[in-house]
Design a binder for these strands. Structure first.
Ligand SMILES: [Mn+2]
Ligand SMILES: [Mn+2]
Ligand SMILES: [Mn+2]
Ligand SMILES: [Mn+2]
Lengths: 225, 225
DNA sequence: GACGATAATTAGGCCCGGCTAAATTTATAA
DNA sequence: TTATAAATTTAGCCGGGCCTAATTATCGTC
């Protein structure tokens, strides 16, 4: 019915419209999908034709009520697969993304349901991203702040890390940073660096601001300054 | 690198050339792949171009030494997946074929190796077909005779059943026929019917000759007539 | 309010994997 | 040996998903 490519476009639009909180621009999609803008334009016309998106020339696109559940279904597949690969097939969390990104389009919903059952309906994937339920509810796990939003001295719990960069994931895991890890913010600099001290006893870790902004957190205690 | 379609053609050629023991004809491939003959012709030219097959116009094709391991790799994926789906994900053996036929093209070799490890390197899939080893050795499990080759009174063990027809698989499993089942041949008719009496105590089962010819067996004891 | 930079779309083309209809080759049988 | 039937290939087309180059729209700035 739907090609893997079409599904990937819908998923990309879903992500981007939740980030920018509005219409998704052709340029943003082209960058995200790693194709030329003209390719995006022609694809948007087709998706619009099929009623998956609202498309206004020169103004960007937005998923329709038909498009959203398709995107969510694929995201459910993706995150369940990541969870399954790490929990049952000994994958490292840095390896799962690519495998899940292919398989998400080819497993049946029966397959998804079976692995969900074996995993006992997990709420989040290995990177802390919420897994939509079987009826595509995604209300759980809205992360508000990030590592970049805290003050020196704050104690915070890591909730979610970006899942697409294996090098970053390996770096984080080498320094004991996972969803669930509690860290103290020990330093922030004017030139864009955040230093964390994990409660686990691991050595302090330094992260550039851009990374810090992509790591979701929950505030535990405010620092005493 | 290789499209799922190309992989399916190579797999089909592999099957057909082992059945007919020679060149695979355009018509046979067209039938098997459910496409027009002209489609097969143009695909054979491309596969030949890429050195996956020897193609002689009007004479059919044969896999090259480059083509064979590609086919075997996919067959390995297919059969490992079938085994995994039945053993670890509660699939019925009648359901696994379609799922495996899609996923075989999209799992990494890492994925294949991990499930092989979990299954402890199984020799055969749920239908009794041999699973090529990681280095693509397929010397194990060569089945010589079929249900149609036996005499009334013979006791035989079922070794392998055809895996593509869910209705047949359901019928067989309802009558207690699986690889490993031992049955007595109790009747053969001139109008193409074989009747079996399972040792398990299940009721006798009747099968048309064409099905009987597709069920591989091992002879245990000759009947006393 | 017009101008230039930037973003987006259009035009036209390529490769893939299908199709139908028309040749052409091979096989069969008189 | 030759005619006919059957199998196969060729020719030409289509949709999907990509590209480059050319055109057009939008937006921030003077
Ligand atoms: Mn994907
Ligand atoms: Mn993830
Ligand atoms: Mn397949
Ligand atoms: Mn099988």
């Amino acid at each position: 019915m739907l090609s893997a490519i079409v599904e990937d476009y819908l998923k990309a639009i879903y992500y981007l419209q939740n980030e920018t909180d509005g219409r998704v621009r052709t340029s943003a999609l082209a960058e995200y999908m790693d194709v030329e803008q003209s390719t995006v334009t022609s694809m948007m016309k087709k998706l619009s034709e099929r009623n998956f998106v609202h498309y206004e020339p020169y103004q960007g696109v937005k998923l329709t009520d038909t498009g959203v559940p398709i995107a969510l279904e694929i995201i459910r597949h993706h995150r369940l697969l990541e969870r399954y690969l790490t929990d049952h097939l000994e994958y490292d969390w840095a390896e799962v993304h690519d495998e899940a990104d292919r398989l998400e389009h080819h497993i049946s919903s029966q397959f998804a349901d079976r692995i969900a059952e074996q995993l006992e309906d997990p709420a989040v994937d290995p990177h802390g991203d919420p897994i939509p339920t079987a009826d595509l509810d995604v209300s759980g796990a809205k992360y508000e702040d990030t590592l970049a939003d805290h003050q020196v001295g704050d104690s915070v719990r890591i909730e979610r890390v970006p899942d697409k960069d294996p090098a970053l994931l390996r770096y984080l895991s080498e320094h004991g940073i996972h969803p669930g890890t509690v860290v103290d913010v020990v330093e922030t600099t004017s030139f864009g660096m955040v230093t964390l001290d994990p409660d686990s006893g691991d050595e302090p870790v330094a992260l550039p601001d851009e990374v810090a902004r992509s790591v979701s957190t929950r505030s535990l205690t405010k620092g005493a300054n």
